[in-house]
């Protein structure tokens, strides 16, 4: 969300209208956020009014459907169900992925053995394997959690591994020059220095987890938001269906923005000024 996080700059007073406009644009980031939201929602509303398709509700209808689903509690219940495999899967991927990534970053043998596997898994369309999960683990929480792990784990592993490999070598030398043990080197230098990138990997893992959980809910068994989407589609309640889709995209966007904020403001205090 680089657009939102850029600093507001103070610029000298403008002479022409054109410059004044540019000045305004630079000072008012929030204005542009609102404007770009408005532009898309207006375009959506117009496209819905035309309508471009019988299955394309207007923005206002969708908003009303969203309000209705929030009011009758079905949205809250759906999110409760969807977030379970997501949180569980991301938590397991985070623990396992960061541990594996750090081991791969520290040991050349483990790097040789594991890095190619995760490079392939990250580049490959893991979605193809989601149907397999149902064979072994059925259609319950375990299957959906596994689907989240399959998509989230590779990106977390590879980022953790790169984070450890890109630790500032001068800090490692510094630790050695003061006769730090290997253990001290790992816990006092390598992990703290890699932490911002580890966290960034976690954020990418969360994004992949959202894709995984939606895939699982649409493919394995309709529950949660996936069920809302499938059900309202089957009864041609398109406004409700769109609202469900928009709600999960919004939920993922807000989650990722919060993580990004945390990363830049807490994990990298030294980058805050730049």
């Amino acid at each position: 969300m680089s657009v939102m996080s850029q600093d507001v700059k103070v610029v000298a007073p403008a002479a022409t209208t054109r410059q004044a406009l540019r000045l305004f644009a630079e000072r008012r980031r929030s204005f542009w956020v609102v404007l770009s939201l408005l532009v898309l929602f207006t375009a959506w509303e117009i496209a819905g009014r035309v309508p471009i398709s019988f299955a394309f509700p207007t923005f206002l209808d969708t908003l009303a459907a969203l309000a209705e689903m929030v009011a009758d509690g079905s949205m809250v219940r759906a999110f409760f169900l969807t977030l379970q495999p997501l949180v569980l899967g991301v938590a397991i991927s985070a623990l396992l992925g960061i541990a594996l990534g750090i081991v791969m970053g520290l040991s050349d043998r483990m790097e040789w053995l594991l890095a190619p596997v995760f490079i392939v898994l990250q580049a490959a369309p893991m979605a193809a394997l989601v149907p397999l999960v149902t064979f072994v683990y059925g259609i319950g929480l375990v299957a959906k959690t596994l689907a989240v792990i399959m998509l989230a784990l590779p990106v977390i592993v590879l980022n953790s591994y790169k984070a450890v490999r890109h630790v500032n070598p001068s800090l490692v030398d510094m630790c050695r020059s003061f006769q730090g043990t290997r253990r001290q080197q790992i816990f006092k230098i390598i992990i703290p220095d890699a932490a911002p990138v580890l966290f960034a990997g976690l954020r990418l893992g969360v994004a992949a987890g959202f894709i995984g959980v939606m895939l699982a809910e649409l493919l394995i068994t309709p529950t949660g938001i996936g069920d809302l989407i499938t059900y309202h589609r089957s009864v041609a309640n398109y406004a409700h269906m769109y609202a469900a889709v928009a709600s999960i995209i919004a939920a993922s966007t807000v989650t990722l923005a919060v993580l990004q904020w945390f990363e830049t403001n807490v994990m990298r205090p030294e980058k805050r000024r730049s």
Binding site: S170, L171, M174, S177, P192, E270
Partner: peptide, 14 residues
């Protein structure tokens, strides 16, 4: 018995 001062300071940013 030896201590090193680094060109890029090698300070822990955290």
């Amino acid at each position: 018995e030896r201590a090193f001062v680094f060109q890029d300071f090698a300070l822990m940013p955290w």
